[in-house]
């Protein structure tokens, strides 16, 4: 069996040297710094894949199971790459009653990803929101910071067309 460690470590070192440097500078040896490190790492790389978690675990001398426990605990942390745009379909009561579910079904079909997923081309991350406070506009969805009102499957198509 070829020894893959050396290569892997080299790869990691070049991929993740920024967070590694920051850990060495600011965090090493500080109790309870894991969440700060993870925030910083997500800021740098956009998400926290297994390899990055391993790298951080090694750097901070923590068990991977603990690092992963924290990453999966907080919904802010993402273990998958985020898309260029985030689509959040509202499923609050009003939007749900007015057909939010249909919008979701349509998006699952159209984007080819499930809720929580990111399209293969990295364009969209698709999530559900629980009431965005725009009940009068139901069913509503948000793309990044913009709210789109009274959606229907065909309206969704035309909105998405503007992002092409």
């Amino acid at each position: 069996m070829p020894d893959r460690t050396a290569a892997l470590t080299e790869q990691k070192r070049s991929d993740y040297h920024e967070i590694g440097d920051l850990i060495d500078l600011y965090f090493k040896g500080k109790q309870g710094c894991l969440i700060q490190v993870l925030h910083t790492a997500q800021g740098l790389y956009g998400y926290l894949p297994l390899e990055l978690q391993q790298y951080i675990a090694d750097k901070l001398e923590l068990p991977l199971s603990e690092v992963s426990g924290v990453v999966t605990f907080y919904s802010f942390f993402s273990i998958n790459p985020r898309g260029e745009h985030t689509i959040r379909v509202c499923l609050g009561t009003a939007c749900y009653v007015r057909g939010g579910k249909k919008i979701i079904d349509h998006l699952i079909q159209k984007l080819g990803v499930e809720v929580g997923g990111t399209t293969a081309d990295g364009k969209y991350t698709f999530e559900i929101a629980r009431c965005i406070g725009a009940c009068g506009l139901a069913p509503a969805l948000m793309i990044d910071d913009v709210v789109y009102r009274q959606m229907s499957p065909s309206k969704v198509d035309s909105v998405l067309a503007t992002f092409q």
């Binding site: 068990p63 991977l64 199971s65 603990e66 992963s68 426990g69 999966t72 605990f73 907080y74 919904s75």
Partner: peptide, 9 residues
């Protein structure tokens, strides 16, 4: 050995 821990929330 720290293999098991709580995951998710």
């Amino acid at each position: 050995t720290s293999v098991l821990n709580t995951q998710n929330r």
